[in-house]
């Protein structure tokens, strides 16, 4: 088991900077999620840790060892790929044993470890099958099993759930969380899905354009995002930003100093009378999700935004309504620097 230390890590292909300069500390046993929109460099960063991509600048250390020049197999990492990447011509048993066999582990030791891992993942009765005969979820388990038997100090997951259907995704997500509890190994997990990030992570790293936007626990990112990008990326539906002309007098009073945008999450709105409201809006469209509903509203300034509510009776299409939120939940931003103020 080991933590990771990334110092000034950079990656460029010819003259394109994919990753500019990343500093990051990952503690031993931590579950870290790299999250960001596609093309933000999260997968590249993971592959650099794995050793599948060259590091063109800076250093990556696993434990106390700088691994820039260490062969992938010697880094003590194991990776679960998006497409599972199981060896199609080998049985599940051989798939899981392959890495140990390459390392010349004794036969009975291999057998012990493979069967133990199969036990954990409940795939003991699939060992003699080939990947072709498995369902998507089973393949996923085998891929995780292949990682477990190598007893790595760091697990790497590259969007492991994106090929599964919605129900299975939730289930597998929980299993990965359990696996982390059970093994206590450092895990790094790449995803573009902020729900996966929120539910799994001890620490989320939000990336954009090859830079870290913010690092923090899920709740920190949710409650105190550093900037407008993180504020919108974490949370679903995303945070609404209001300019002066979208706000009431009372709302405008909250724009102080450098603050020129108010950020309010859809789930934090409460209805009120027009006088004490921060925003006056006209409901336009309702998406009813059952447990709650998303009401698309239009401000007096003409901006569309979303309110999440459990009580639809207050919202009548085309009828103006006052909306407010707990002061502590209203965040101030500056639109030029994109930073959160205060």
């Amino acid at each position: 088991m080991a933590g990771l230390t990334l110092r000034n890590v950079a990656k460029n292909y010819a003259d394109v900077n994919v990753i500019e300069s990343i500093d990051l500390d990952i503690k031993d046993g931590e579950f870290v999620v790299f999250v960001g929109p596609s093309g933000c460099g999260k997968s590249t960063l993971l592959r650099m840790i794995a050793g599948l991509e060259d590091i063109t600048g800076g250093t990556i250390a696993i434990g106390d060892t700088v691994v820039n020049e260490v062969a992938p197999a010697k880094r003590g990492v194991a990776m679960v790929f998006q497409t599972y990447a199981l060896y199609p011509h080998m049985t599940v048993y051989k798939n899981m044993a392959f890495g140990l066999k390459q390392a010349k582990t004794p036969k009975d030791e291999i057998d012990k470890r493979v069967r133990a891992a199969a036990e954990i993942l409940e795939i003991s009765d699939l060992l003699e099958r080939t990947p072709r005969a498995l369902s998507g979820g089973q393949r996923q388990r085998v891929a995780i099993g292949r990682a477990i038997v190598r007893e790595p100090s760091v697990f790497l997951f590259d969007e492991p759930l994106s090929n599964l259907d919605a129900a299975l995704r939730v289930q597998t997500r929980i299993e990965i969380a359990r696996l982390h509890q059970r093994l206590g190994t450092t895990m790094i997990y790449v995803t573009h899905d902020q729900v996966e990030a929120m539910t799994l992570a001890d620490k989320i790293v939000v990336l954009r354009g090859g830079n870290i936007e913010q690092v923090g626990s899920p709740i920190e990112l949710y409650e105190t995002p550093d900037n407008m990008f993180v504020a919108q990326f974490i949370g679903s539906p995303k945070m609404n930003f209001f300019k002066a002309e979208d706000l009431t007098k009372k709302g405008q009073a909250m724009l102080k100093g450098d603050v020129d945008r108010l950020g309010i999450r859809p789930e934090h709105f409460t209805t009120t009378d027009v006088k004490s409201a921060l925003v006056v809006a006209t409901p336009d469209l309702v998406e009813n999700l059952g447990e709650n509903a998303l009401v698309h509203c239009i401000t007096e300034g003409g901006m569309e935004f979303i309110v999440k509510t459990t009580d639809l009776t207050k919202f009548k299409q085309g009828k103006k309504i006052g909306l407010t939120a707990d002061k502590a939940r209203v965040l101030g931003f500056n639109s030029t620097t994109q930073k959160r103020i205060g």
Partner: peptide, 28 residues
């Protein structure tokens, strides 16, 4: 499949072992 090869690299397979265990069966 290139990801299979990458998985094999992480499993410590040499180029020859990758050829024998992945490429040859693929070319059967």
């Amino acid at each position: 499949d290139q990801q299979q090869k990458e998985a094999a690299i992480l499993d410590g397979a040499s180029a020859w072992s990758q050829f024998c265990n992945l490429t040859l069966p693929h070319l059967a």
